[in-house]
Amino acid sequence: MATLRSEIAGIVTSEDIVRVRHMVRDAAVRLSFSLVDQTKIVTAASELARNTLEYGGGGTVRIDELADHGRLGLQLIFEDRGPGIADLNQAMQDGFTSGSGLGLGLGGAKRLCNEFEIQSKPGEGTRVRVARWK
């Protein structure tokens, strides 16, 4: 698997969520994703970036444009050093929120991507990796 391009962005303010949406859109356009596929991964990115900011206390996202045996894909890795998630099963459930959200971010991001992986340790932080392939 080859990495065609990789960039890292900080997520510290709510304007950064908008910037992440635009960066992911640009990457998806570069990979010639269809409009629906672009919209899906940008929406997933928006949800995960907001979680990084709101619950993780800020963090980073790495945006990787990948090629695997001719197949093009977009991988996003969100990382924070926030409080972490004690009960991942609960957090993944649609409708569960510890804040004032709709509880659709994690489950929605999973449905909107082909690959979804979450690692979290209470007190250490959270890492979410998603990928969508063309």
Partner: peptide
């Protein structure tokens, strides 16, 4: 609402 947005909302679960 754009069609791509409508399709995405369904998968998001909204």
């Amino acid at each position: 609402m754009r069609p791509a947005v409508a399709i995405t909302l369904v998968e998001l679960g909204l």
